Amino acid sequence: MTKKTIVCVVGARPNFMKIAPIIKALKKTQEHVSFYLVHTGQHYDQAMKASFFQQLDIPEPDIDLEVGSGSHSEQTAHIMLRFEPVLDKVKPCAVLVVGDVNSTVACGLVAVKKAIPVIHVEAGLRSHDRQMPEEINRVLTDQISDTLFTTERSAHEHLLKEGIESRRIHFVGNVMIDTLRANLEHAIAFTETLKNYDKAQPVKVGEYALLTLHRPSNVDDPRTLTRLLLSIAGISRKLPVIFPIHPRTHNQIKQQGLLDVISSPTIIGLPPVGYLQMLGLMQSAKLVLTDSGGLQEETTSLGIPCVTLRENTERPITVEQGTNTIVGTDPEKIQACVDDILTTGGKSGRIPEYWDGKAAERILAEIKRIYL
Score class of each variant (00 low, 15 high):
1 M>T: 08
1 M>Y: 08
2 T>H: 09
2 T>I: 12
10 V>K: 03
15 N>F: 04
16 F>L: 00
19 I>P: 01
20 A>K: 00
21 P>N: 09
23 I>M: 01
24 K>W: 00
27 K>S: 00
33 V>W: 04
35 F>A: 00
38 V>L: 08
39 H>R: 11
42 Q>F: 06
43 H>P: 14
46 Q>C: 14
46 Q>M: 10
48 M>V: 15
51 S>Y: 07
51 S>M: 13
52 F>C: 00
54 Q>R: 12
54 Q>S: 10
56 L>H: 02
58 I>T: 03
61 P>W: 06
63 I>H: 03
67 V>I: 10
77 A>Y: 07
77 A>S: 15
78 H>C: 13
89 K>T: 13
90 V>S: 07
91 K>G: 11
92 P>H: 06
97 V>L: 05
97 V>K: 00
103 S>L: 06
105 V>R: 04
107 C>I: 03
109 L>V: 08
112 V>N: 08
112 V>A: 08
115 A>M: 15
122 E>Q: 11
124 G>K: 05
124 G>T: 06
125 L>H: 02
126 R>F: 05
126 R>H: 09
129 D>S: 15
131 Q>P: 11
141 T>D: 01
143 Q>W: 11
144 I>H: 10
145 S>K: 03
146 D>F: 04
147 T>R: 08
149 F>H: 04
149 F>R: 08
155 A>T: 06
157 E>R: 11
159 L>D: 01
159 L>E: 04
162 E>D: 09
166 S>Q: 12
168 R>M: 08
169 I>C: 04
175 V>K: 00
184 L>Y: 01
188 I>K: 07
191 T>N: 10
191 T>G: 14
192 E>H: 07
194 L>T: 05
194 L>Q: 06
194 L>P: 05
195 K>A: 12
196 N>C: 11
202 P>Y: 05
211 L>W: 02
212 T>N: 14
218 N>A: 14
221 D>R: 14
224 T>E: 04
224 T>K: 07
225 L>P: 01
228 L>F: 09
232 I>S: 02
232 I>K: 05
237 R>P: 10
240 P>G: 11
241 V>T: 09
245 I>W: 05
246 H>Q: 08
250 H>K: 15
251 N>F: 12
251 N>L: 12
253 I>F: 11
254 K>P: 06
255 Q>K: 15
266 T>Q: 13
267 I>M: 01
268 I>F: 01
277 Q>S: 10
280 G>T: 02
282 M>T: 04
282 M>K: 08
284 S>P: 10
285 A>R: 14
288 V>F: 01
290 T>D: 07
291 D>T: 09
293 G>V: 02
296 Q>D: 07
301 S>N: 10
305 P>S: 12
309 L>Q: 03
316 P>S: 03
317 I>N: 09
318 T>S: 15
323 T>A: 08
323 T>V: 10
324 N>Q: 09
330 D>Y: 11
332 E>V: 12
335 Q>D: 09
335 Q>C: 06
337 C>P: 03
337 C>Y: 01
342 L>R: 05
343 T>Y: 10
345 G>N: 07
348 S>I: 14
351 I>F: 01
355 W>L: 01
358 K>W: 09
359 A>L: 13
370 I>M: 15
